[in-house]
Simulated scan of single mutants.
Amino acid sequence: MQFPVRVPIQVRFSDLDTLKHVNNAVYLTYDEVARGHYLGRTGAAIDGGNFVMARAEVDYVRPILFDGTVEIAIRVEKVGNSSFRTYSETWASGELAARIKVVVVWLEDGKPARIPDSLREAIRALEVEAVEGL
C-alpha cells in the first residue's frame, strides 16, 4: 500500500504512561499530527475550523517504547459527500505498532457541508501521485 505522506514524530517522555510505553490515547495524537501534514499538502487551511473528527478506530499491534521516533504513514481511503476517511499506520523501531482509521467531517458554519471540489481534487492528486511514484 502506498502512502502519500509520512511523518516522523519524536516520542516525548510525557507520551508515556505508568507502564513506560506510549499511552494508547497518544496514538491518536500522532495520527492527528500526520493528518494535519496531509491536509497541509493539499493546501487546505487546517486552522480554519472546517475539520472535525467524527470517528476513530484503532488496532493496537504492539506497544511503543520511549526509544526515539515513530513514523506515521497516512492516506485518504475514501471521500464522501461531507466526510472523508483516512487510514494510517504507526511504525516504531521498524515495526508496525498500530493501524488507525478516522472519519473526518467537513464543516461550514458549524454544520456538515459538501467537501469543496478543490479539496477533493487535491486529495485525489495526492493519492494518484503516491501510486504513480511506485
Rank of each mutant, 00 (worst) to 15 (best):
Y60A: 04
E77S: 15
I9H: 12
V70I: 15
V33L: 10
E77G: 15
R124N: 08
R85G: 04
E71F: 09
A125I: 03
S93C: 09
L119E: 01
A97L: 01
L39G: 03
Y60M: 06
A54N: 08
E89T: 09
V105T: 11
E127G: 01
G40M: 07
Y27D: 02
K20F: 09
G40L: 03
L126K: 07
S83V: 06
E77H: 13
M53I: 15
G110F: 02
L134W: 11
G80W: 00
P8C: 08
S82Y: 06
T42S: 03
H37K: 15
R55T: 12
I9S: 11
G40R: 01
F13S: 09
I100R: 05
L28D: 04
V52H: 07
N24L: 05
E57H: 14
I46R: 09
Y38E: 00
E89N: 09
V52S: 08
G133D: 03
R99G: 00
I115R: 08
K101C: 13
G36P: 00
L19D: 10
Y87P: 07
I100F: 06
G110H: 04
L39T: 03
S118N: 09
S14D: 12
G49H: 00
M1D: 04
I74L: 12
Y27V: 07
R6M: 08
V52K: 12
V128E: 14
W106N: 03
G48K: 13
L19P: 00
L96K: 12
V58N: 10
M53V: 15
Y87N: 14
V103R: 12
T90L: 15
V70E: 00
G94V: 07
V33D: 04
D31C: 12
